[in-house]
């Protein structure tokens, strides 16, 4: 059974965080925030905290922890926050009451756009642009969720604790990547490559990444077929993959 606290971390730091990329990857999403300069704070009692910002020029960014906000949303606990993400609960606005229309309007539509990318229909995936954006967002979601599951899920922590220190690069050849830093059993994720990876897992192309991350192809078979390549200090990947195996429980 998924741990609610881990689920809340995954929901904020891995799922909602994607909106920072969505607004540039998806034209419709970009239109929703055009000209809007907002900073939405999420504060979960006993759980995660972060701020999602739009710069008024079509760009988005997410910061973990506290930052200046124009709208502040408070949640009584991880379960409360998880219920909002699942669509069955509502936040308690503490600041920005006059901007509630942004929350109920553009922001809600943004989350629906995000869901359409993270849970795409077969028809949507037939569109090459949507397929590419979906795969990129899925890669980021998986990479950031991996760090949260490794840091908070009881079984994830056991396996994350066995990952030797260093940077693991998970990416698509000539495409996007997530760098996962392991230090003393704690994981942190960042977008992009560092050039200092001690181990790497590289998908041959977007199709390969989509197949494995979407659960349609197991990683072992993909490796044998050359759809994913692993190199470097393999014990890092071996233990990381055991954490990655837990991630779908939190994204289902």
């Amino acid at each position: 059974m998924p741990d609610p606290a881990t689920m809340a971390n995954v929901n904020l730091y891995a799922v909602l965080r994607n909106i920072e990329d969505l607004v540039t990857l998806d034209e419709e999403a970009g239109k929703l925030i055009a000209g809007r300069r907002e900073a939405i704070g999420f504060s979960v009692h006993g759980g995660p905290r972060g701020v999602l910002s739009f710069d008024g020029k079509g760009g988005g960014s997410f910061v973990r922890g506290a930052a200046k906000t124009s709208i502040s949303l408070w949640f009584s606990g991880p379960e409360h926050f998880n219920s909002m993400v699942a669509g069955s609960g509502s936040p308690i606005p503490l600041k920005g009451l006059t901007k509630l229309s942004f929350l109920t309007g553009p922001f809600t539509m943004l989350t629906k756009r995000l869901e359409s990318y993270l849970r795409p229909s077969p028809e949507a995936l037939a569109d090459p642009a949507i397929f590419k954006a979906t795969t990129e967002l899925t890669l980021y979601t998986a990479g950031f969720a991996l760090a949260e599951v490794g840091n908070a899920d009881p079984v994830g922590m056991l396996n994350a604790g066995r990952i030797p220190d260093g940077i693991i690069e998970i990416g698509i050849k000539d495409g996007p990547a997530v760098s996962l830093t392991a230090k003393g059993g704690c994981l942190s994720a960042a977008k992009g490559r560092t050039g200092k990876a001690r181990a790497s897992m590289t998908f041959a192309d977007y199709q390969a990444a989509s197949g494995v991350l979407g659960g349609r192809r197991d990683a072992m078979t993909a490796l044998g077929l050359g759809e994913v390549a692993m190199s470097g200090f393999i014990p890092m990947l071996e233990h990381m993959n055991k954490v990655l195996g837990l991630v779908p429980r939190y994204l289902a």
Partner: peptide
């Protein structure tokens, strides 16, 4: 790969045996 989990499982397979590059 179509009919066997992992294609070749265990220590003789490409994953456990660390076929790098495969």
């Amino acid at each position: 790969a179509k009919v066997i989990p992992g294609g070749v499982y265990g220590h003789l397979g490409p994953a456990e045996s660390c076929f790098i590059p495969v």
